[in-house]
Amino acid sequence: MSLQRILFFVLFGAALLACNDDDLPQADGPTPYSLIIPSSLPGLPIPNNNPLTEEGVELGRKLFYDPLLSGNNTQSCGNCHNQADGFTDNQLQYSTGIDGISGDRNSMPLFNIGYANNFFWDGGATTLESQVVAPIMNPIEMHEDLANAISELNAHPDYPLLFNKAFGSDSITTSMVMKAIAQFERTLLSGNSKYDRYMKGQATLTPQEQNGLIVFRAAAKGDCTHCHTLGGTFTDFGYRNTGLDSIAVDSGRARITLNPLDLGRFKTPTLRNIAVTAPYMHDGRFFSLQEVLDHYNTGFHYPVNLDPNLRAAVKGRMTAQEMTDLIAFLQTLTDTDFLTNPAYGRP
């Protein structure tokens, strides 16, 4: 190789490397998190600006269970989102915040939440990350001043290092807190219920459960699949008025869209783990699945914006036995592995 050629390559390299710090691989950056998605669930969308990392997920888990994020350091996210109850609040109708004030909506399950595009019963939050700060700030929930939480985290003996490992900076910002908790929440995947194993040929449904599945699907009976799509997430993530009241008490989706047609419309919840997430409906008014089915069978009202499928439904279309069978089927959607997986519990 001629001297000229060698020189050329040396200088070529030098020219490319000049000012190249920004492109150098981050040798000690966070480790990508390898998310295992149950085969019964679809691929999970992950936002480009918040990839899952081992450090981020673990930090998010620590924050999720840390009461430091509440105004008087007594409540964490985990207080009202208990793993054994499918990350809902201990069979309570309403949760009570740090000031002893209770809300007017039922604590929502958090598993498979990465599949949703909007969060809360009314879909007010449009990203999982921005959802995170709402319960922290809400005066009737954790009632914390965000700026105060951030300064507490920055002064903490452990957190600056953990944030540095996850996000490359030990100067903690609100955005990092939002991202870390959202990362942890995206890992909460539930897809190994008896029904899922039945679908894979690894379990058998009892005759009663099988009959319940038939009722679930039958248009003239349960007619559940319009909203609670069978398999996968068991929800279409839509918003509907299901006739709980003739005039909506809670404005629901209209609070966000400011559209009167959305009055009393709420998000379709998932049916996975439904047997452990009582009470039911946005306001937790029904304490048993039987009460829920009674509502859909005979109890619903006819508000102007009642969901069309319900408006067309005949009252009294299910027999008592069919509802009993349907409940037996809904109980096959409980995923005990998920509810007891130590990876999702308090660290």
Binding site: F120, D122, G124, A125, T126, T127, S130, Q131, V133, A134, M137, N138, P139, L146, R255, I256
Partner: peptide, 8 residues
């Protein structure tokens, strides 16, 4: 200046 119930 961030809504407690709404993104934005």
């Amino acid at each position: 200046m961030f809504w407690p119930w709404n993104t934005g």
